[in-house]
Nucleic acid binder design. Structure first.
Lengths: 339, 339
DNA sequence: CGTTAGCACTCTCTGGCATAGAGTGCTAAT
DNA sequence: ATTAGCACTCTATGCCAGAGAGTGCTAACG
């Protein structure tokens, strides 16, 4: 536990450093906040804070910089979560109402809005339901021996795939097959479809198999698809003045890595999770902080959104922005895909 | 017209500079290629080339750098398009055959493969047919007063949208509507659908209108969706050693700008187009070169792919890579979506 | 006449060096 | 417990000199 004064000091250091990106010195902080102590006293306190691991020294004669532990303490005990200004909330809501009907569009919008609000990179995954159930399937011939298989799953997910047949096939036959399979499979999940494949013609079996494959791939997928926005915000920050650092960051934010690097899988089912610097399990993320929240309806469609940036991050503002937009997306999902 | 010797010299300068990114000096080039002239002679020739605008000086005592005009001459008259090595072609083909069935997957793969092959950024747009025609539509109820509208268009495009109704509606009604509309609209394009909306119930009209809107949006869209890969390749190049240059590049490659900045719209219907530096109409692209090719079947599904990088680019290799992958994609489209 | 050797000149890059500025840690006094 | 004072440390900046690469010009050569 920190004494009251040290806690206050730590809070000042964090806020100052987050704003300026410059190591903060004892003298500067005393002057700036007109503290009722001399810089020497502050130096003593800083020495203590450093000993206990909350701040550190880039080099002997530089000011102090918060450590991961310092940020952690700040986030947990010192900061107060600032609600987003009414104005901002209104603007954001407005943008969502203007957005089109397509789900992908919202998601990308959410990422863009979030990135802009927190001036960092934002990732929003496409929401998934825990388990997909078939609502309806459709077979449309597109070539002699090929048809387009369209699956409508619960919660308005649509999947499509081109299906090849060993021999030419008529649209009538396709319709017959889809009718039969609709009857047999409607409302079923992948496992059930896998089980009930007895008593079928070879063609039906072929289609059923494809259906099952698509559905279980979709279930297995987890958070594979995601939208990323605001890379530029991150790369503009002073910590990336050297271009090799930039490249490292770019690697981290490469689309492919993202969903792997972020701890989406091990997320608690609700609430905001903050991972600061080395708290991240992935090596590549050890210098960054992540603020994550799931969104959607527990048991229904669930996605996750995250803000990624340097550990030097405006935690209170970031947390409230993530919270607000996650709630907003949950609402939108609920009103559109309720069932 | 350049004399033979000056042309040869220009070719050497271009190739040397493309490889090294360093201004090339008279002495260096004589030694490296054991030219049967002295460096002084080469200096004279260089002075001429510069006077005529093919090369330029960063500053008085530096070597020469090709100008846009120099690259242009090189591309048109000097270089020989090197076919891709058999090995490479085989590897690429192989990757495509291993890819999944989903069109988006190929496209992203094409971008990734191209980016890797030319060590620059690559953009591949999602192919569109000039005009979409409705093949089949489907209405699936998902809520009391909402249904999912799924359109299957010619050439295996699937579009979906959630449709709200002013009042609760039964699946039976939905089916009836879709049957009637399928009968009326199958094979028609957006304009035709817009014309034949007489004699309909209000609900049918509501759905028909949505269908028309989706289809004409899709027709208007042009090359809106695109996959971008290999940004990192570009940013790694020595011309981006300073981080502000990097940021500029990032801006250029932002998803949203891309399809606007690249001259996809004004592309000839086939063949490779090369835009070098200031030949690009967009200001932001004046320091970059673009190698573009359409792909697909004229009259049918068409897309475009482009390589974007600094003007200092391996033009022959880039051009053949673009050509090869465009052909490959055309083949793949043809075999899968022929009709 | 084309080619070339020679040379003065220009510009960049690098390393060394001194200085200013910010900050620390320690000590002794209040 | 707090503070003034001070020596010390480290970085950043500007300046300068020298090395290196390259140019442009001139005069000479076959």
């Amino acid at each position: 536990m920190l004494t009251e004064r040290r806690a206050q000091l730590l809070s000042l250091i964090v806020r100052e450093y987050v704003d300026s990106a410059l190591p903060v010195g004892s003298d500067a902080i005393v002057r700036k906040h007109e503290l009722p102590f001399s810089s020497a006293t502050i130096r003593n306190e800083m020495a203590h804070l450093e000993e206990e691991g909350y701040i550190s020294h880039p080099h002997t004669s530089a000011g102090r910089v918060p450590s991961d532990q310092g940020y952690r303490y700040y986030v947990e005990a010192l900061m107060q979560e600032s609600d987003l200004p009414r104005e901002v909330k209104r603007t954001i809501r407005h943008q969502f109402h203007q957005a089109g009907r397509e789900e992908d569009e919202w998601i990308q919008l959410a990422a863009a809005v979030l990135a802009r609000a927190v001036e960092n990179a934002a990732v929003v995954t496409v929401p998934r339901s825990a388990e997909s159930r078939l609502k309806r399937l459709e077979l449309v011939g597109i070539q002699d021996n090929a048809a387009l298989l369209v699956l409508v799953l619960h919660q308005a997910r649509v999947k499509q795939q081109v299906l090849l047949f060993p021999e030419p096939i008529e649209q009538d036959d396709l319709t017959r097959i889809s009718n039969r399979l609709n009857g047999a499979f409607a409302g079923h999940n992948a496992v059930e479809i896998g089980r009930s494949q007895a008593q079928m013609t070879q063609l039906e079996w072929h289609v059923a198999n494809a259906v099952r494959a698509i559905m279980s791939a979709s279930d297995r997928g987890g958070f594979d698809e995601a939208y990323l926005e605001g890379v530029r915000n991150v790369l503009q920050k002073p910590e990336f003045a050297t271009s090799d650092k930039m490249l490292t960051m770019l690697d981290v934010l490469e689309h492919k890595n993202l969903t792997r690097l972020l701890p989406f899988a091990s997320l608690p089912p609700e609430g905001i999770t903050v991972r600061i610097g080395a708290e991240n399990e992935e090596d590549a993320m050890r210098e960054y902080s992540v603020v994550i929240s799931p969104y959607g309806m527990p048991g229904g469609m669930m996605g996750a959104m995250a803000v990624v940036g340097p550990t030097r991050m405006h935690y209170p503002e970031t947390i409230s922005a993530v919270r607000f937009i996650a709630e907003l997306m949950s609402e939108m999902l609920a009103t559109h895909y309720d069932e």
